[in-house]
Design a protein around this nucleic acid. Structure first.
Lengths: 210, 210
DNA sequence: ACGGTAGGAGACGCGAGCGTTTCTTAGCTA
DNA sequence: TAGCTAAGAAACGCTCGCGTCTCCTACCGT
Protein backbone atom coordinates (compact mmCIF):
# COMPACT_ATOMS: atom_id res chain seq x y z
CA UNK A 1 0.00 0.00 0.00
CA UNK A 2 1.61 3.29 -1.09
CA UNK A 3 1.28 6.57 0.78
CA UNK A 4 -2.07 8.29 0.65
CA UNK A 5 -2.33 11.01 -2.04
CA UNK A 6 -1.15 14.37 -0.84
CA UNK A 7 -3.69 17.05 -0.13
CA UNK A 8 -3.16 19.57 -2.92
CA UNK A 9 -4.29 22.49 -0.81
CA UNK A 10 -1.29 21.87 1.46
CA UNK A 11 1.19 22.06 -1.40
CA UNK A 12 0.49 25.68 -2.18
CA UNK A 13 2.26 27.57 0.57
CA UNK A 14 -0.15 30.05 2.13
CA UNK A 15 -1.02 31.43 -1.30
CA UNK A 16 2.20 33.46 -1.36
CA UNK A 17 4.55 33.73 -4.33
CA UNK A 18 3.01 31.53 -6.94
CA UNK A 19 5.31 33.25 -9.35
CA UNK A 20 7.96 30.73 -10.38
CA UNK A 21 11.38 32.22 -11.19
CA UNK A 22 13.96 30.79 -13.59
CA UNK A 23 17.56 31.27 -14.68
CA UNK A 24 19.17 34.50 -13.64
CA UNK A 25 16.29 35.82 -11.58
CA UNK A 26 16.32 32.68 -9.50
CA UNK A 27 20.08 32.68 -9.13
CA UNK A 28 20.05 36.27 -7.95
CA UNK A 29 17.47 35.47 -5.34
CA UNK A 30 19.61 32.55 -4.16
CA UNK A 31 22.73 34.73 -4.00
CA UNK A 32 20.88 37.25 -1.89
CA UNK A 33 19.74 34.49 0.42
CA UNK A 34 23.30 33.20 0.72
CA UNK A 35 24.67 36.60 1.67
CA UNK A 36 21.89 37.22 4.17
CA UNK A 37 22.38 33.81 5.68
CA UNK A 38 26.14 34.25 6.01
CA UNK A 39 25.67 37.64 7.58
CA UNK A 40 23.08 36.47 10.06
CA UNK A 41 24.30 33.08 11.17
CA UNK A 42 27.81 32.75 9.72
CA UNK A 43 29.56 30.20 7.60
CA UNK A 44 29.60 27.60 10.37
CA UNK A 45 25.85 27.31 10.88
CA UNK A 46 25.13 27.96 7.22
CA UNK A 47 22.96 25.26 5.65
CA UNK A 48 21.74 24.68 2.12
CA UNK A 49 18.37 23.88 3.58
CA UNK A 50 17.85 27.28 5.15
CA UNK A 51 19.17 29.09 2.08
CA UNK A 52 16.56 27.27 0.02
CA UNK A 53 13.83 28.21 2.46
CA UNK A 54 14.97 31.82 2.61
CA UNK A 55 15.06 32.07 -1.16
CA UNK A 56 11.63 30.40 -1.43
CA UNK A 57 13.01 27.66 -3.59
CA UNK A 58 13.75 23.94 -3.32
CA UNK A 59 17.04 22.38 -2.36
CA UNK A 60 17.14 20.58 -5.70
CA UNK A 61 17.31 23.85 -7.60
CA UNK A 62 20.42 24.72 -5.63
CA UNK A 63 22.11 21.34 -5.86
CA UNK A 64 21.42 21.29 -9.58
CA UNK A 65 23.68 24.35 -9.94
CA UNK A 66 26.29 24.11 -7.20
CA UNK A 67 27.42 20.74 -5.93
CA UNK A 68 28.80 21.97 -2.62
CA UNK A 69 28.42 24.65 0.00
CA UNK A 70 31.78 26.14 -1.04
CA UNK A 71 30.81 26.37 -4.68
CA UNK A 72 27.62 28.13 -3.75
CA UNK A 73 29.28 30.60 -1.43
CA UNK A 74 32.10 31.37 -3.84
CA UNK A 75 29.62 31.88 -6.65
CA UNK A 76 27.48 34.16 -4.53
CA UNK A 77 30.52 36.23 -3.67
CA UNK A 78 31.70 36.51 -7.22
CA UNK A 79 28.24 37.63 -8.25
CA UNK A 80 27.78 40.14 -5.44
CA UNK A 81 31.35 41.38 -5.11
CA UNK A 82 31.43 43.22 -8.41
CA UNK A 83 28.51 45.37 -7.37
CA UNK A 84 29.74 46.05 -3.89
CA UNK A 85 33.47 46.47 -3.93
CA UNK A 86 34.01 49.67 -5.81
CA UNK A 87 36.13 51.40 -3.24
CA UNK A 88 37.13 54.55 -5.02
CA UNK A 89 33.61 55.21 -6.21
CA UNK A 90 32.73 58.81 -6.75
CA UNK A 91 36.18 60.18 -5.97
CA UNK A 92 36.90 62.66 -8.71
CA UNK A 93 40.24 63.82 -9.96
CA UNK A 94 39.67 67.12 -8.15
CA UNK A 95 39.67 65.58 -4.67
CA UNK A 96 42.81 65.98 -2.61
CA UNK A 97 44.72 62.84 -1.67
CA UNK A 98 43.78 63.36 1.96
CA UNK A 99 40.06 63.60 1.25
CA UNK A 100 40.22 60.68 -1.17
CA UNK A 101 41.80 58.55 1.55
CA UNK A 102 39.10 59.48 4.02
CA UNK A 103 36.54 58.60 1.39
CA UNK A 104 38.10 55.19 0.74
CA UNK A 105 38.23 54.61 4.48
CA UNK A 106 34.53 55.31 4.74
CA UNK A 107 33.80 52.97 1.85
CA UNK A 108 35.76 50.16 3.49
CA UNK A 109 33.88 50.62 6.75
CA UNK A 110 30.53 50.79 5.03
CA UNK A 111 31.26 47.57 3.19
CA UNK A 112 32.49 45.63 6.17
CA UNK A 113 29.62 46.82 8.33
CA UNK A 114 26.99 45.98 5.72
CA UNK A 115 25.57 42.59 4.91
CA UNK A 116 28.24 41.72 2.39
CA UNK A 117 30.89 42.54 4.96
CA UNK A 118 29.41 40.30 7.60
CA UNK A 119 29.46 37.56 5.02
CA UNK A 120 33.01 38.54 4.20
CA UNK A 121 34.06 38.06 7.79
CA UNK A 122 32.41 34.67 7.93
CA UNK A 123 34.00 33.52 4.71
CA UNK A 124 37.36 35.04 5.55
CA UNK A 125 37.48 32.88 8.64
CA UNK A 126 36.95 29.78 6.58
CA UNK A 127 39.47 30.79 3.97
CA UNK A 128 42.37 29.72 6.19
CA UNK A 129 41.27 26.17 5.61
CA UNK A 130 40.05 26.58 2.05
CA UNK A 131 42.59 27.82 -0.45
CA UNK A 132 40.08 28.08 -3.27
CA UNK A 133 37.84 30.28 -1.21
CA UNK A 134 40.81 32.40 -0.17
CA UNK A 135 41.86 32.85 -3.79
CA UNK A 136 38.38 33.83 -4.92
CA UNK A 137 38.16 36.28 -2.06
CA UNK A 138 41.50 37.88 -2.78
CA UNK A 139 40.77 38.26 -6.47
CA UNK A 140 37.44 39.94 -5.78
CA UNK A 141 38.28 42.01 -2.74
CA UNK A 142 41.99 42.18 -2.04
CA UNK A 143 43.30 42.97 -5.49
CA UNK A 144 40.84 45.73 -6.36
CA UNK A 145 41.49 47.32 -2.99
CA UNK A 146 45.25 47.28 -3.45
CA UNK A 147 44.99 48.67 -6.95
CA UNK A 148 42.58 51.39 -5.94
CA UNK A 149 44.80 52.60 -3.13
CA UNK A 150 48.04 52.41 -5.05
CA UNK A 151 46.42 54.32 -7.91
CA UNK A 152 45.28 56.93 -5.44
CA UNK A 153 48.80 57.41 -4.14
CA UNK A 154 50.22 57.62 -7.63
CA UNK A 155 47.70 60.31 -8.48
CA UNK A 156 48.93 62.06 -5.35
CA UNK A 157 52.50 61.93 -6.62
CA UNK A 158 51.40 63.54 -9.87
CA UNK A 159 49.73 66.30 -7.91
CA UNK A 160 52.83 66.85 -5.79
CA UNK A 161 51.00 65.84 -2.60
CA UNK A 162 52.86 62.58 -2.16
CA UNK A 163 56.55 61.72 -2.08
CA UNK A 164 57.32 59.40 -5.02
CA UNK A 165 58.90 56.79 -2.71
CA UNK A 166 55.69 56.69 -0.67
CA UNK A 167 53.61 55.42 -3.58
CA UNK A 168 54.33 51.96 -2.31
CA UNK A 169 52.39 48.75 -1.69
CA UNK A 170 53.37 48.79 1.95
CA UNK A 171 52.26 52.37 2.51
CA UNK A 172 49.03 51.69 0.65
CA UNK A 173 48.30 48.89 3.11
CA UNK A 174 48.38 51.10 6.19
CA UNK A 175 44.87 52.53 5.99
CA UNK A 176 43.05 49.29 5.14
CA UNK A 177 45.16 47.39 7.66
CA UNK A 178 44.24 49.68 10.52
CA UNK A 179 40.58 49.67 9.59
CA UNK A 180 40.36 45.93 9.02
CA UNK A 181 42.02 44.93 12.27
CA UNK A 182 39.55 47.07 14.13
CA UNK A 183 36.56 45.94 12.12
CA UNK A 184 37.40 42.32 11.43
CA UNK A 185 39.84 41.17 14.06
CA UNK A 186 38.57 43.20 16.99
CA UNK A 187 35.00 43.56 15.79
CA UNK A 188 34.79 47.16 16.93
CA UNK A 189 32.98 49.96 15.12
CA UNK A 190 34.89 52.74 13.38
CA UNK A 191 33.66 56.31 13.44
CA UNK A 192 34.27 58.95 10.80
CA UNK A 193 36.41 60.77 13.30
CA UNK A 194 38.51 57.65 13.77
CA UNK A 195 39.10 57.39 10.05
CA UNK A 196 40.19 61.02 9.91
CA UNK A 197 42.57 60.49 12.79
CA UNK A 198 44.18 57.58 11.00
CA UNK A 199 44.49 59.52 7.77
CA UNK A 200 45.74 62.73 9.37
CA UNK A 201 48.00 61.31 12.07
CA UNK A 202 49.32 58.17 10.45
CA UNK A 203 48.94 58.00 6.70
CA UNK A 204 49.43 61.61 5.60
CA UNK A 205 52.62 62.13 7.60
CA UNK A 206 54.06 59.14 5.73
CA UNK A 207 53.11 60.58 2.37
CA UNK A 208 53.98 64.24 2.65
CA UNK A 209 57.00 65.53 0.78
CA UNK A 210 59.74 66.82 3.04
CA UNK B 1 17.46 -10.98 28.24
CA UNK B 2 20.02 -8.26 28.75
CA UNK B 3 22.96 -7.61 26.43
CA UNK B 4 25.76 -10.14 26.53
CA UNK B 5 28.66 -9.14 28.81
CA UNK B 6 31.23 -7.01 27.08
CA UNK B 7 34.54 -8.58 26.15
CA UNK B 8 36.99 -6.95 28.53
CA UNK B 9 39.91 -7.25 26.14
CA UNK B 10 38.03 -4.87 23.80
CA UNK B 11 37.59 -2.23 26.47
CA UNK B 12 41.29 -1.62 26.96
CA UNK B 13 42.22 0.37 23.90
CA UNK B 14 45.14 -1.45 22.27
CA UNK B 15 47.03 -1.63 25.56
CA UNK B 16 47.90 2.06 25.30
CA UNK B 17 47.62 4.62 28.09
CA UNK B 18 46.22 2.74 31.02
CA UNK B 19 47.36 5.71 33.06
CA UNK B 20 44.28 7.55 34.24
CA UNK B 21 44.71 11.29 34.68
CA UNK B 22 42.77 13.53 37.06
CA UNK B 23 42.20 17.16 37.89
CA UNK B 24 44.65 19.59 36.40
CA UNK B 25 46.61 17.07 34.37
CA UNK B 26 43.44 15.98 32.66
CA UNK B 27 42.27 19.51 32.08
CA UNK B 28 45.58 20.44 30.52
CA UNK B 29 45.37 17.50 28.15
CA UNK B 30 41.85 18.56 27.18
CA UNK B 31 42.94 22.16 26.60
CA UNK B 32 45.73 20.94 24.33
CA UNK B 33 43.25 18.84 22.41
CA UNK B 34 40.93 21.82 22.04
CA UNK B 35 43.65 24.04 20.64
CA UNK B 36 44.88 21.33 18.26
CA UNK B 37 41.36 20.66 17.13
CA UNK B 38 40.61 24.34 16.52
CA UNK B 39 43.84 24.73 14.62
CA UNK B 40 43.29 21.70 12.41
CA UNK B 41 39.60 21.78 11.63
CA UNK B 42 38.37 25.15 12.88
CA UNK B 43 35.58 26.27 15.15
CA UNK B 44 32.87 25.29 12.70
CA UNK B 45 33.69 21.61 12.45
CA UNK B 46 34.82 21.45 16.07
CA UNK B 47 33.03 18.74 18.07
CA UNK B 48 33.17 17.73 21.70
CA UNK B 49 33.30 14.15 20.56
CA UNK B 50 36.56 14.50 18.66
CA UNK B 51 38.14 16.58 21.42
CA UNK B 52 37.39 13.74 23.81
CA UNK B 53 38.90 11.20 21.45
CA UNK B 54 41.96 13.34 20.82
CA UNK B 55 42.50 13.82 24.54
CA UNK B 56 41.95 10.11 25.19
CA UNK B 57 39.14 10.82 27.55
CA UNK B 58 35.39 10.37 27.64
CA UNK B 59 32.79 12.94 26.67
CA UNK B 60 31.37 12.81 30.18
CA UNK B 61 34.59 14.13 31.68
CA UNK B 62 34.30 17.14 29.43
CA UNK B 63 30.58 17.77 29.95
CA UNK B 64 31.11 17.45 33.70
CA UNK B 65 33.36 20.53 33.56
CA UNK B 66 32.08 22.70 30.72
CA UNK B 67 28.42 22.68 29.76
CA UNK B 68 28.90 24.06 26.25
CA UNK B 69 31.31 24.25 23.37
CA UNK B 70 31.81 27.97 24.04
CA UNK B 71 32.64 27.44 27.69
CA UNK B 72 35.18 24.84 26.76
CA UNK B 73 36.83 26.95 24.08
CA UNK B 74 36.93 30.07 26.21
CA UNK B 75 38.39 28.12 29.11
CA UNK B 76 41.02 26.55 26.89
CA UNK B 77 42.00 29.98 25.62
CA UNK B 78 42.20 31.51 29.05
CA UNK B 79 44.40 28.64 30.18
CA UNK B 80 46.68 28.70 27.16
CA UNK B 81 46.74 32.43 26.54
CA UNK B 82 48.71 33.31 29.63
CA UNK B 83 51.57 31.08 28.59
CA UNK B 84 51.56 32.06 24.96
CA UNK B 85 50.87 35.75 24.74
CA UNK B 86 53.89 37.32 26.31
CA UNK B 87 54.71 39.64 23.46
CA UNK B 88 57.53 41.64 24.88
CA UNK B 89 59.30 38.59 26.21
CA UNK B 90 63.05 38.84 26.47
CA UNK B 91 63.25 42.45 25.37
CA UNK B 92 65.59 44.12 27.82
CA UNK B 93 65.77 47.76 28.74
CA UNK B 94 68.96 48.00 26.70
CA UNK B 95 67.23 47.24 23.37
CA UNK B 96 66.54 50.15 21.06
CA UNK B 97 62.92 50.96 20.29
CA UNK B 98 63.47 49.90 16.71
CA UNK B 99 64.82 46.47 17.64
CA UNK B 100 62.17 45.99 20.29
CA UNK B 101 59.49 46.67 17.67
CA UNK B 102 61.01 44.13 15.31
CA UNK B 103 61.09 41.67 18.17
CA UNK B 104 57.43 42.23 19.02
CA UNK B 105 56.59 41.85 15.35
CA UNK B 106 58.35 38.51 15.26
CA UNK B 107 56.50 37.40 18.39
CA UNK B 108 53.15 38.31 16.88
CA UNK B 109 53.93 36.36 13.73
CA UNK B 110 55.18 33.35 15.64
CA UNK B 111 52.02 33.29 17.71
CA UNK B 112 49.61 33.65 14.84
CA UNK B 113 51.44 31.07 12.78
CA UNK B 114 51.57 28.54 15.61
CA UNK B 115 48.79 26.30 16.83
CA UNK B 116 47.37 28.84 19.23
CA UNK B 117 47.19 31.35 16.40
CA UNK B 118 45.29 29.04 14.12
CA UNK B 119 42.86 28.54 16.94
CA UNK B 120 42.79 32.27 17.41
CA UNK B 121 41.75 32.79 13.81
CA UNK B 122 39.01 30.22 14.13
CA UNK B 123 37.67 31.72 17.32
CA UNK B 124 38.05 35.28 16.11
CA UNK B 125 35.72 34.45 13.26
CA UNK B 126 33.09 33.26 15.65
CA UNK B 127 33.49 36.20 17.98
CA UNK B 128 31.48 38.43 15.67
CA UNK B 129 28.45 36.43 16.66
CA UNK B 130 29.45 35.70 20.24
CA UNK B 131 30.06 38.72 22.43
CA UNK B 132 31.25 36.67 25.39
CA UNK B 133 33.88 34.98 23.28
CA UNK B 134 34.94 38.31 21.85
CA UNK B 135 35.32 39.79 25.33
CA UNK B 136 37.38 36.87 26.58
CA UNK B 137 39.55 37.10 23.53
CA UNK B 138 40.13 40.81 23.86
CA UNK B 139 40.98 40.56 27.56
CA UNK B 140 43.52 37.83 26.93
CA UNK B 141 45.03 38.91 23.67
CA UNK B 142 44.04 42.42 22.68
CA UNK B 143 44.66 44.23 25.97
CA UNK B 144 48.09 42.74 26.74
CA UNK B 145 49.17 43.50 23.20
CA UNK B 146 48.06 47.13 23.43
CA UNK B 147 49.69 47.59 26.80
CA UNK B 148 52.94 46.00 25.70
CA UNK B 149 53.24 48.21 22.67
CA UNK B 150 52.23 51.38 24.38
CA UNK B 151 54.73 50.67 27.15
CA UNK B 152 57.38 50.13 24.55
CA UNK B 153 56.70 53.49 22.98
CA UNK B 154 56.70 55.22 26.34
CA UNK B 155 60.08 53.69 27.12
CA UNK B 156 61.19 55.06 23.75
CA UNK B 157 60.07 58.55 24.79
CA UNK B 158 62.14 58.27 27.97
CA UNK B 159 65.15 57.28 25.87
CA UNK B 160 64.61 60.20 23.52
CA UNK B 161 63.97 57.92 20.56
CA UNK B 162 60.29 58.68 20.28
CA UNK B 163 58.37 61.93 20.04
CA UNK B 164 56.12 62.27 23.11
CA UNK B 165 53.03 62.82 20.94
CA UNK B 166 53.72 59.55 19.13
CA UNK B 167 53.33 57.43 22.28
CA UNK B 168 49.73 57.03 21.28
CA UNK B 169 47.19 54.18 21.07
CA UNK B 170 46.70 54.79 17.39
CA UNK B 171 50.40 54.73 16.57
CA UNK B 172 50.85 51.63 18.71
CA UNK B 173 48.24 49.90 16.57
CA UNK B 174 50.09 50.34 13.31
CA UNK B 175 52.51 47.43 13.59
CA UNK B 176 50.03 44.82 14.86
CA UNK B 177 47.44 46.05 12.39
CA UNK B 178 49.70 45.59 9.40
CA UNK B 179 50.84 42.18 10.55
CA UNK B 180 47.39 40.95 11.48
CA UNK B 181 45.73 41.96 8.23
CA UNK B 182 48.37 40.04 6.33
CA UNK B 183 48.31 37.06 8.65
CA UNK B 184 44.67 36.85 9.61
CA UNK B 185 42.66 38.61 6.93
CA UNK B 186 44.77 37.73 3.92
CA UNK B 187 46.26 34.53 5.32
CA UNK B 188 49.69 35.30 3.87
CA UNK B 189 53.03 34.55 5.53
CA UNK B 190 55.22 37.35 6.87
CA UNK B 191 58.99 37.20 6.57
CA UNK B 192 61.48 38.78 8.94
CA UNK B 193 62.41 41.12 6.16
CA UNK B 194 58.79 42.17 5.82
CA UNK B 195 58.61 42.98 9.51
CA UNK B 196 61.76 45.09 9.26
CA UNK B 197 60.36 46.95 6.27
CA UNK B 198 57.22 47.79 8.21
CA UNK B 199 59.18 48.94 11.22
CA UNK B 200 61.78 50.92 9.26
CA UNK B 201 59.56 52.41 6.57
CA UNK B 202 56.28 52.90 8.37
CA UNK B 203 56.48 52.83 12.14
CA UNK B 204 59.86 54.42 12.87
CA UNK B 205 59.26 57.44 10.62
CA UNK B 206 56.12 58.13 12.66
CA UNK B 207 58.00 57.95 15.93
CA UNK B 208 61.19 59.81 15.24
CA UNK B 209 61.65 63.23 16.80
CA UNK B 210 61.91 66.01 14.24
C1' DA C 1 43.68 -2.53 52.51
C1' DC C 2 39.34 -0.70 51.41
C1' DG C 3 35.79 2.20 49.70
C1' DG C 4 34.28 6.28 47.40
C1' DT C 5 34.95 9.19 43.66
C1' DA C 6 35.82 10.15 39.15
C1' DG C 7 38.08 8.60 34.56
C1' DG C 8 38.02 5.93 30.17
C1' DA C 9 35.07 4.00 26.96
C1' DG C 10 31.18 3.60 24.43
C1' DA C 11 25.90 2.57 23.76
C1' DC C 12 21.69 5.13 23.38
C1' DG C 13 17.80 7.83 21.46
C1' DC C 14 17.27 12.23 19.49
C1' DG C 15 17.28 15.91 16.14
C1' DA C 16 19.43 18.34 12.23
C1' DG C 17 21.03 18.59 7.83
C1' DC C 18 22.59 15.94 4.06
C1' DG C 19 21.84 14.78 -0.89
C1' DT C 20 18.28 12.26 -3.53
C1' DT C 21 13.94 11.51 -5.20
C1' DT C 22 9.13 12.18 -6.12
C1' DC C 23 5.29 14.85 -7.43
C1' DT C 24 2.55 18.64 -9.31
C1' DT C 25 2.56 22.51 -12.15
C1' DA C 26 4.40 27.18 -14.13
C1' DG C 27 6.51 29.01 -17.90
C1' DC C 28 8.98 28.77 -22.09
C1' DT C 29 9.35 27.06 -26.96
C1' DA C 30 8.04 24.88 -31.12
C1' DT D 1 -1.70 25.16 -27.91
C1' DA D 2 0.93 21.02 -26.77
C1' DG D 3 4.89 19.42 -24.82
C1' DC D 4 9.01 19.69 -22.42
C1' DT D 5 11.85 21.27 -18.98
C1' DA D 6 12.74 22.74 -14.61
C1' DA D 7 10.72 25.18 -10.23
C1' DG D 8 8.77 24.72 -5.74
C1' DA D 9 7.85 21.82 -2.08
C1' DA D 10 8.40 18.07 0.73
C1' DA D 11 9.30 13.04 1.99
C1' DC D 12 13.08 9.84 2.36
C1' DG D 13 16.92 7.21 4.30
C1' DC D 14 21.31 8.34 6.02
C1' DT D 15 25.02 10.02 8.83
C1' DC D 16 26.81 12.68 12.49
C1' DG D 17 27.13 14.84 16.76
C1' DC D 18 24.51 15.86 20.64
C1' DG D 19 23.97 15.18 25.73
C1' DT D 20 22.88 11.36 28.89
C1' DC D 21 23.71 7.16 30.91
C1' DT D 22 25.88 2.88 32.18
C1' DC D 23 29.77 0.03 32.97
C1' DC D 24 34.11 -1.23 34.82
C1' DT D 25 38.18 0.16 37.15
C1' DA D 26 42.23 3.24 38.45
C1' DC D 27 43.36 6.37 41.71
C1' DC D 28 43.30 8.63 46.27
C1' DG D 29 42.23 9.46 51.02
C1' DT D 30 41.72 7.36 55.51
Amino acid sequence: MTAAPVDFAQRVSTDAIRHRRRGEALEDAIYDAVVDELAQIGYAAFTIESVATRAHTGKASIYRRWPTKQDLVVAAFCAKAGEAFDLVGATTAATTTRDALVHVGRRICALVRGGVGEALRAVGAESSRDAELAAALDARVGCPKREALLGLLQRGVARGEVRPEAADELVAEVLPAMLLTRLVVQGLPVSDEHIERIVDNIVMPLLRPA
